[in-house]
Amino acid sequence: MRDWARAHPIWTGIAALLVLILLYLILAVWPEWIDSILRSKKIFLSALFNGITLGGLYFLVASGFTLIFGLMRNVNLAHGSLYLMGGYIGYYVSYTTGYWLLAFPIAFVVVGFVGVLLQFFVFRRMEGEDLRQTLVTIGISIVIADLLLWVVGGDFYVITPPDWLSGPLETGIITSQRVRSSGEVTNFYLSYPMVRIVIFCASVVIGVGMWLLLNRTRIGMLIRAGVDDRDMLSATGARIQLVFAGVFAFGAGLAGMAGVVGGTFQSVAPGEDIRFLLASLVVVIVGGMGSIPGAALGALLIGLAEQIGSIYFPTYAVVLTFLIMVGVLAFRPQGLLGRT
């Protein structure tokens, strides 16, 4: 980070300036002219926060995808189906047991197990055959989508969070001020759904945990070695198939957990699998394939673009995310934080 800043002083300056502007926009009481450009502060702030929290959800889905790709070069286009599966399992568990928190470990374990099955029966048989993996996983995603439709039906399901999470949270951020004629000043504060903030914090914790696991532990060392040179690692006696299965289970489990999160944020329904597959594709292409920080950056960018776009130019919000992807591809094909 420091090296990068030293090497690119101008970019660092621009980034710092942007951060300052953003902080000003969040914390200050807006004068009239900003209000007239960006509508009102309340709308802007809720779009910003929605974008950041949606970015957290995208990060959960895309980090599993990018981890699997980075280590094994496996292209798992059934990742969206794993997400959807996790969402349905989460709904079922939280509906039958009444414990929302219980949905997470169960979705993680069950979907992780499906991931191990995929790795064992599908990917291990076609190592290094990109195209075949893609085609087979497209086939699997078609089959899983139809099986889920068969079993669950085409309805929308919303996972309800427990009571202690469902209310709004008063943040200390002033959205607007009203000055009475008597000189008394009333502040209006932004309130934001508690559950979104908690889930965002959880995804940050998971992201940091993943980074620590990869960079500070022995298993992480094995995984990173596998990313760099798989054959050499297996020659040193590491049981690489075990590492592969573990990473696949972890990545798939993350997708499953993200399904529970998505079901709480929005809803689970047929078609969400393709939506989240596309989202994670765009995220990892923008951020850089196989890079966890890249996935975080990409997820944040795409989430923000989607939400802020949907406020300020609602018609083409979806197209905006693809424009970002095209821009990144045109100038930095390996992705923002991808290695060349």
């Binding site: 055959e129 195209l131 085609l135 087979v136 086939g139 078609i142 089959v143 139809d146 439709l149 068969w150």
Partner: peptide, 19 residues
């Protein structure tokens, strides 16, 4: 309604056994 399942399975079998 299970049409997609049939197509998906057929596709899967073909690509799995004969690239």
């Amino acid at each position: 309604d299970r049409f997609n399942l049939l197509i998906g399975m057929g596709f899967l079998l073909v690509v799995f056994f004969s690239p």
